[in-house]
Design a protein around this nucleic acid. Sequence first.
DNA 1: GGATCAAATATCCTATAGGATCGGCGGACC
DNA 2: GGTCCGCCGATCCTATAGGATATTTGATCC
Lengths: 216, 216
Amino acid sequence: MSEVNEAADRQIVRPSGLAEEVYRRIRADIMSLKLPPDTRVSVDSLARELGVSQTPIREALSMLEANGLVSKKHFTGYATAPRMGRAQLDELFEFRLLVEPHAARKAAEAMAESDIGSLASGEGAPSHDGFADMDTEFHKLIAQGGGNHLIADSLARLHIHVHIFRSCFRSEIAEEAVHEHDAVIKAIRARDGAAAEAAMRRHIERSYGRLRDFIE
Amino acid sequence: MSEVNEAADRQIVRPSGLAEEVYRRIRADIMSLKLPPDTRVSVDSLARELGVSQTPIREALSMLEANGLVSKKHFTGYATAPRMGRAQLDELFEFRLLVEPHAARKAAEAMAESDIGSLASGEGAPSHDGFADMDTEFHKLIAQGGGNHLIADSLARLHIHVHIFRSCFRSEIAEEAVHEHDAVIKAIRARDGAAAEAAMRRHIERSYGRLRDFIE
DNA sequence: GGATCAAATATCCTATAGGATCGGCGGACC
DNA sequence: GGTCCGCCGATCCTATAGGATATTTGATCC
């Protein structure tokens, strides 16, 4: 083995299991719409494509099923979850509206200074995907900032679906969203919990309004 | 096939997959403490014990891992999640306190009359396990009563951990809990959302106080 | 021409065998 | 006596073969 990648191997010799890697790969394909909603996903097609056995594929798909990204029908196979309907969008935002403002308040009160420095509104994002990634990072940091893993995990799971929904409609980069993000960041920087909660609630309400237009 | 079990087959001809059944079985074993927290779970031991192949065991364990009931360490095997510590108990009840009162309010406003009739406080439960089951059913019905599947699923996932924690300490049947449940039921029957929300918040706060005593 | 039935295909589901890796144990060496 | 090294067991990971089932397609009949 050459010396050049010896340093790299020192970093991560952690295989961590093929199933985990397959899981990430399929999830990425779903989020990037390479696997559109309501699409059949065959086990041995994936096995051939990724060059691994069926077992890790099955494990990955089982995990994805538990997270609601694919569904399994007996003797029919796996399929990606159908695109969210109006009812599911309503439920999702009811949940976010319940949890995420609370997370923002706690983040304002307890978030580490170093993480606050990482907050970015997404201004000047080069593309739709670029903005989507920054938006995901923004909400993830705030959810984790509250220090409650359950809250962070729940919101992360939901945000995947928001991401897919938004990507389906090639929603334009909302200039407003950047300003709403800025308001939240400013409140967190000021350690003003009430203001952060209000700003986040406003952001989610308006985000809901922008997405709701795409349906029906 | 004999005629006697023909009726039974009419009931459930839905194999629905072995993995699903194995999943239920292992989850039941974890909840009943037949598999205590922080216990190794071997794949082929289970395969021999249940008389099925390794594949459905792996799928079931992957789903359990996604739900946080077991964890996998590479080349070491699966193990049930360790018992909740103080920090996790705090996080769990912070989450419940955030979500469940809201669910109770919505249940009071939107719950079907037939489901309201199924609500039981758990009074006169014959045993610890009996009360635990009725408690689970109580919270499940209310969570579903709000009509939001995301909320119901999140709370169901958390309630498993509450159940395990409580079972670990063989917590006595709290007479108070029955009265608190009654208060919630009464508010829901009266279709009084605010009262249901307050009663549920009070119930969770006191439940938290009762469980917190067991730790440290 | 439309509907019904049967064969064919694709897929999942199961079972078994073999290779690779990690943790623990005993013995040898310093 | 402490430390290091090789062996062994357990486990996971992979691969392949065979059985079972749902969906599709095509032909036949009305």
